[in-house]
Design a protein around this nucleic acid. Structure first.
Lengths: 340, 340
DNA sequence: ATGAAAGCGCTAACAT
DNA sequence: ATGTTAGCGCTTTCAT
């Protein structure tokens, strides 16, 4: 049985309240002599405070929950989640909060979330890319547990920290357009994912805005993987009306496209400009480093966590915040060239 | 104020124990009619059990702690940790345990660990690559909190789940030797890291075992990064007595070496065979996919977590387990060729 | 300056 | 079959 403050009190023939105040350094003053003796006995008996008991009274766990998106298998292998977690951990550290990661349900199951988040072990939660309808959102908010979202779409009534997908695509397209490209193809991600959808929409908006002929078949959705990108690109590059610029919705697919181009003898960037999105390490490691878009996911998650703690401490609901993207120009893009 | 079982009891004019048993489905039998009414009122009042209160009595948190290695900044960006966490999460899911990630101290600070792990919020912990002397280990064990290690070195008195670094290098070296290579260079990692040290030692052991002349300067330590690998490789490849096989302690450095080779016009694998370690995505994505060594980190972490739970549930201290590595042959290796 | 005692919400031993 | 009650270890109010 572990040592408790009762043991210390008995040992010194003083009351538990005195021990408690001595151990916590207040709020009630304790004479230095008494305090020192308490501290010493605590060490001798190897006393370790039971934070569970404490949090029952204080109603603070000094821990924040993290609810990842998607399934429950191998969640930590997602690069996006890694960055988000890293940011959350950075801020949690600074704020002296521990992290409880809920991997037993996804950020789309409001009922499960409500149960777990309200069970007293966390004071609030960061929801990563949740997909909740208004009803579920309401249910969650009804628990009174402060929550913030790290997500590419806004969730009504919850402070949302998001990156600007549309801006990223806009930057890529403007850059390519400025280089002289007039013939584009968009290799999109799975359209049931918000990021993928928002990037496609921004692509289409740009194409329309510069008055390019509205052509069907100037995009195709794939699955955000290298293999997926390679497959689509192989078909595309064999076409006679091959585009001069291939705008991919993430770096993995761009790497796949690069591989397809290499197999088919299409020179990048001379005969084909290729762009990615997300600035993952893989896009920088390949033979032709990929022009891509940087999203400050770590910073977003850090900011979300700081905002969460302010809410936990009684502050008002934080405002949404949208973070700008940055175009990262590397070697996979150039002006279009008629003959090479 | 949140609903408690007391509220439900009052509402139905029954005792709290009946409510408790009804809610938990036992162990005391509760007539179905009563149980249904309890459940219904619970739902109406939006009752959510307080697990903090429960765990005070049951002395079980149904959560396991994870203590990452190294510093406290951007820990989640380590690929090794990602895989380890993924495995831990997989098993924790299956075993209905939540995860508490302690990022506020590293797995090398025994005193901090003892305090946090013994504070009642977790039932046990998985320590990732801890570096503890016997004294610290003893202190940790004295808390009585079950712990297991995911580590490349054994920690006395704690079940350790480890991969076989030496075996991996042995596999790489045997393969290269079998191809006909007799001139090797080892690009090592930081030698204060266990993995790096063990890989270097295995390399040296192999070189000696096949009776190759014991030459100084047949290895150099770098920092596990692409840049580090590139830098060392550039110097090395300019030497007149250039080796035919470059054995890198991880994939990142191998990718850097590939880049240096490309810059210097050294053909891989024709003029130089290059190998990596860890089988990270980047090693597969490059123009010349790298021959490497696979370590089943996810599986190791899964097994460690399963063993931890058995210990938590009163089982004996689990035995150590060493997992075999696998050689993954790709395009960066071939027989040495005199002239190309 | 310090002790006694009341709970936090729950489970479980003890009564009836 | 069900109610009463004693804690779990701690903080904090109330009393002295």
């Amino acid at each position: 049985m572990a040592t408790t403050i009762k043991d210390i009190a008995r040992e010194l023939n003083i009351s538990v309240s005195t021990v408690s105040y001595a151990l916590n350094g207040g709020p009630r003053p304790v004479p230095p002599t008494v305090r020192d003796r308490v501290l010493q006995v605590a060490r001798e008996l190897n006393y370790r405070p039971n934070r569970v008991a404490r949090s029952m009274i204080t109603r603070r766990a000094n821990a924040i929950g993290v609810v990842p998106m998607g399934g429950t298998h191998n969640v930590f292998l997602s690069p996006y989640l890694q960055q988000a977690l890293s940011g959350i951990a950075n801020s949690a550290n600074d704020l002296h909060q521990d992290l409880v990661i809920f991997t037993r349900f996804s950020a789309s199951d409001a009922e499960a979330m409500a149960c777990y988040l309200a069970d007293g072990r966390v004071d609030g939660a960061v929801l990563i890319a949740p997909r909740l309808d208004d009803d579920s959102l309401g249910k969650l908010r009804a628990t009174g547990i402060p929550c913030v979202c790290v997500s590419s779409v806004h969730h009504e009534g919850m402070p949302t920290f998001t990156t600007d997908n549309a801006m990223g695509i806009q930057q890529v397209m403007s850059y390519l357009y400025g280089l002289g490209h007039r013939s584009f193809f968009h290799l999109a991600g799975p359209l049931d994912m918000d990021d993928a959808r928002l990037r496609l929409e921004a692509y289409q908006r740009f194409v329309r805005s510069v008055g390019l002929p509205d052509q069907a078949g100037d995009f195709e959705a794939s699955d955000f993987t290298m293999i997926g990108g390679e497959t689509v690109a192989r078909d595309l590059l064999a076409r006679s009306d091959r585009p001069t610029a291939l705008v991919c919705a993430n770096d993995e697919m761009a790497v796949g496209a690069l591989r397809a181009a290499s197999e088919l003898g299409v020179a990048v960037p001379e005969q084909l400009s290729v762009t990615g999105f997300d600035m993952t390490p893989i896009g920088a490691a390949v033979a032709t480093p990929i022009t891509t878009v940087y999203q400050p996911v770590v910073e977003i998650a850090e900011a979300a966590t700081v905002a969460l703690l302010a809410m936990i401490e009684g502050g008002p609901v934080a405002p949404d915040k949208v973070f700008p993207t940055e175009l990262v120009v590397r070697s996979s893009t150039s002006r279009p060239q008629e003959d090479v």
